[in-house]
Design a protein around this nucleic acid. Structure first.
Length: 508
RNA sequence: GGGCCGGUAGCUCAGUUGGCAGAGCAGCGGACUUUUAAUCCGCGGGUCGCAGGUUCGAUUCCUGCCCGGCUCACCA
């Protein structure tokens, strides 16, 4: 939901600066200038022309046509300098009255153009006395007039609300933000490169689902008006992707949006981008090796090395990463060995003795998860796998042989954050049905994050699913790591924000 | 939802122990042919988040509300 100024502004609502720009617009129109012409002339991008000029591959007399937003202007009498930005880079232009002509220079360039306007220039490339690559302008045209002043010159824009509600202003005022989302795109591209290269098939599965599942989360609910059908926005891709393993694909992946109806925090946005892959004929050990290899590939591809700095921590993605049994990690960090507390009640007592908040309705698995997030997770700065999780919070994972309530599952942690979750996939249809039924009972008992029974999925498993390992990773969180950000909103272009409420009295 | 901090010009911020509201940038007028945070002279610009209250007087103090940030709880 974007915030919209609800009505077009009336003349008196306009800022002085906006009023002045509209007057300039009217003046331009009456002098026959189209302030929003349909076409532009361009021979090079700014990055191209800069490169060609520096490599001396540009004829000295060659006339180039460049475009961009005017982001600064320094008028010094009969000579001016300005910078334009076309999205590929910034370039200085030099505008001289004796070259451009008196009228275009005095009136058009100095008076009618404003910072923020898009312009086209034609001229020759040159160096200034200080050695800056510059276009000496012979002709200048308006490509699009800006009616509002740009947020800032060198302070950038820092108001967090403006930055996120009006991300376009953030992007145009803060070059490092623009760069950050380029890094995000590189990350996604590198993940695809890796998986495609390993023979994974990229697929798309339904976002609107009649039965949701695959994760512990509350869904968003919607409705199909013509089918009279209740639908859920997916909370994971898992159950559909594994149906594809049944169908005969051996390696599939999907990158897309998940939706979870939960609180918003530094690490959580209600919709987030997830990568899931499923690989037949491997198990969670194989997936761990693949995770290390894949993430090392991506980090190398994006940053040029395997070491990054995040919020002052040096983090090294070089494989292999330590694998620590969850039980051991929790024991070492908290002094609680949950194996000695076989039921929720006794574990709860032990936790409360340590002064921890342990809600009465939480299952044993959820309590263990609480121990993990409280004692262990914040200290896992270097890439680490925690392995072997409690069964009751892992309804889709295969039981570890020789155990009763432990599954072959791991989670990957970096920088004190969980970034991925994976397991040997449960492919026993009868066991899966039992687990679903347990989930269904939990759901009815009020656990809003339990998932309903998916009989079609059981049916699919009943035709046989190969042994497989599966993996899920939050791309947003991974992007936080590689862009040195500690808030998920900084790596999502349009993060979810509370609706903007208009003042009851201030309205009108 | 609880706690803490904040909201002052288009942007970034200062300030008022309660007494005419400030700076830099941006804007407007002027000077200036190698600047790059250009410089110099002059000018305009404010519902001090909103609403009540206390007061001779509130941007400042009090109460409520709105919005935001951090944090706790919850979660990926």
């Amino acid at each position: 939901m974007s915030s919209q100024p609800s009505l077009p502004p009336t003349e008196q609502d306009l800022l002085d600066q906006e009023r002045i720009r509209r007057e300039k617009l009217a003046r331009l129109r009456s002098s026959g200038v189209d302030p929003y012409p349909p076409r532009v002339e361009r021979t090079h991008t700014i990055s191209q022309v800069r490169e060609l000029f520096q490599q001396q591959q540009l004829d000295e007399e060659e006339r180039v046509a460049l475009v961009g937003r005017m982001i600064s202007r320094r008028v010094m009498g009969k000579l001016s300098f300005a910078h334009i930005d076309d999205g590929t880079g910034r370039l200085q232009i030099m505008v001289r009255r004796d070259v451009l002509g008196a009228e275009p220079y005095n009136q058009f360039f100095k008076k009618d153009l404003d910072l923020g306007d898009f312009i086209g220039v034609k001229g020759k490339m040159t160096l200034t006395r200080t050695g800056e690559v510059t276009c000496l302008v012979e002709e200048i045209t308006l490509l699009a007039k800006a009616l509002k002043p740009l947020p800032a010159k060198w302070h950038g824009l820092s108001d967090p609300e403006l930055r996120q509600r009006q991300r376009y202003l953030d992007l145009l005022a803060n070059p490092d933000v623009r760069e950050r989302f380029r890094v995000r795109a590189k990350i996604v591209r590198a993940l695809r490169e890796y998986l495609d290269g390993e023979g994974f098939l990229e697929v798309e599965t339904p976002i609107l689902q009649p039965v949701y599942g695959g994760a512990a989360a509350e869904p968003f609910v919607t409705y199909h008006n013509y089918l009279h059908q209740k639908l859920y926005l997916r909370i994971s891709f898992e159950l559909y992707l594994k149906r594809l393993l049944v169908g005969g694909y051996d390696r599939v992946y999907e990158i897309g949006r998940d939706f979870r109806n939960e609180g918003i925090s530094r690490k959580h946005n209600p919709e987030f981008t997830q990568l899931e892959f499923y690989e037949a004929y491997t198990d969670y050990h194989g997936v761990m090796r693949r995770t290390e290899e894949m993430l090392a590939y991506v980090v190398e591809r994006v940053t040029g090395g395997l070491k990054i700095t995040w919020q002052g921590h040096d983090i090294d993605f070089t494989p292999p990463w330590p694998r620590i049994p969850l039980r051991q990690a929790i024991l070492e960090a908290s002094g609680i060995d949950y194996d000695q507390f076989p039921d929720a009640e006794s574990l709860r007592m032990a936790m409360r003795e340590k002064g921890m908040d342990a809600p009465s309705e939480a299952s044993r698995g959820k309590l263990i998860d609480k121990l993990l997030s409280h004692f262990v997770e914040p200290n896992l700065i270097q890439p680490t796998f925690l392995i072997d999780y409690p069964l009751d919070v892992s309804p889709l994972a295969k039981r570890k042989p020789g155990t009763k309530d432990i599954v072959e599952r791991f989670e990957g942690f970096v920088a004190g954050m969980e970034i991925c979750n994976a397991f040997s996939e449960l492919n026993d249809p009868l066991d899966q049905l039992e687990r679903f039924l347990a989930q269904g009972r939990a759901l009815e008992a009020g656990d809003k994050e339990a998932t309903p029974v998916d009989m079609d999925y059981i049916n699919a498993l009943s035709y046989g699913m190969p042994p497989a390992g599966g993996f899920g990773m939050g791309i947003d969180r991974f992007t936080m790591l590689l862009t040195d950000q500690d808030n998920i909103r900084e790596v999502i272009l349009f993060p979810h924000l509370r609706p903007e409420k208009r003042d009851q009295d201030g309205a009108s």
